[in-house]
C-alpha cells in the first residue's frame, strides 16, 4: 500500500503504490501511516504521483492522518498530485488545510 522512499532526520517520504485510492484500501492506508507517525514521530511527506483517482473514503483517511499528526505536533505534506486528484481536493477545500507541493524537492526547500 505504501512504500518508504526516504527516511531523514526530520521527515519520512512515502509513496502510495496504488492507482485507485478508494474504499478498498483507505483503512489499510490510514492504519499504516498512523503506525508510521507513532513509531517515527516525524513529519510525513506523502507522494501521490501514482494515484490516478481518489474517493471520499481515502480523503477521509488523509484527514484522519492529518489530525493524528497535528495531535503529535507533526505535519502531513502532500506532493506529486495529478490534476484530477488536486482538483478534487480543491473542490472540497482540503487544499486549505494540507500543505501541497508539486514534488518532494519543492516541499523540503520551503
Amino acid at each position: 500500500m505504501i512504500k518508504i522512499i526516504k527516511d531523514t532526520e526530520n521527515h519520512i517520504l512515502i509513496e502510495i503504490e496504488v492507482s485507485e485510492a478508494n474504499l478498498n484500501n483507505s483503512d489499510l492506508f490510514k492504519a499504516q501511516v498512523i503506525q508510521l507517525l507513532d513509531r517515527h514521530k516525524k513529519t510525513v511527506i506523502i507522494d501521490l504521483n501514482k494515484v490516478e483517482y481518489i474517493d471520499s473514503s481515502f480523503l477521509g483517511a488523509l484527514v484522519a492522518i492529518l489530525k493524528h499528526a497535528i495531535g503529535m505536533k507533526l505535519d502531513v505534506i502532500l506532493v506529486g498530485l495529478r490534476n484530477d486528484v488536486h482538483d478534487l481536493l480543491k473542490l472540497i477545500r482540503l487544499d486549505k488545510v494540507f500543505k501541497i507541493f508539486g514534488n518532494y524537492n519543492d516541499a523540503i526547500n520551503v
Binding site: G60, A61, V63, I70
Partner: peptide
C-alpha cells in the same frame, strides 16, 4: 483542523 469532518461523500 481537528473539527474537519471525515465523511465527504
Amino acid at each position: 483542523v481537528e473539527n474537519i469532518v471525515e465523511h465527504f461523500g
